[in-house]
Design a protein around this nucleic acid. Structure first.
Length: 112
DNA sequence: CGGGTGACTTTAC
DNA sequence: CGTAAAGCCACCC
């Protein structure tokens, strides 16, 4: 891999490679970038890139599949709308938290 | 250069 | 099962 790139550059590159209709998790991305303990920073990088239309940050969810970052988008419904537009269904929990089925939508780069 | 931050994760109760 | 606290460490100011 390109060790020359910074951690956030790898995160951005990884997120950009997430296929349509799939999602990934912070922990997996961090581990894929060689920083398994830097899961928090993945979200941090997303926050910096949430204004970039070339980074599908809405396809990144937490370890449980919850859209924890939806409130950080321009509007609280942006993440939900985009994922819904990609054919992803949500698990209705009844609370404010929205969840996706990782067993169906999680993109595992290692299995390509 | 040092401190504060946080879109996570794990462990403990 | 649920909530609470601690650990984690790159990035920004």
């Amino acid at each position: 891999m390109n060790d020359r790139l910074d951690f956030q550059e790898r995160v951005i590159n990884y997120v950009k490679n997430i296929p349509w209709g799939k999602v990934s998790t912070y922990g997996r991305i961090a581990r894929a970038c060689g920083m398994p303990s830097a899961a928090r920073h993945v979200g941090y990088v997303m926050n910096r890139c949430r204004d970039r239309d070339d980074v599908p940050c809405h396809r990144v969810v937490n370890r449980n599949g919850y859209l924890t970052g939806r409130l950080h988008f321009d509007t609280p419904g942006t993440m939900e709308e985009r994922l819904s537009g990609e054919g992803i269904e949500f698990d209705n929990i009844g609370n404010d938290m929205i969840k996706v089925d990782l067993d169906r939508y999680l993109w595992e780069a290692d299995s390509e």
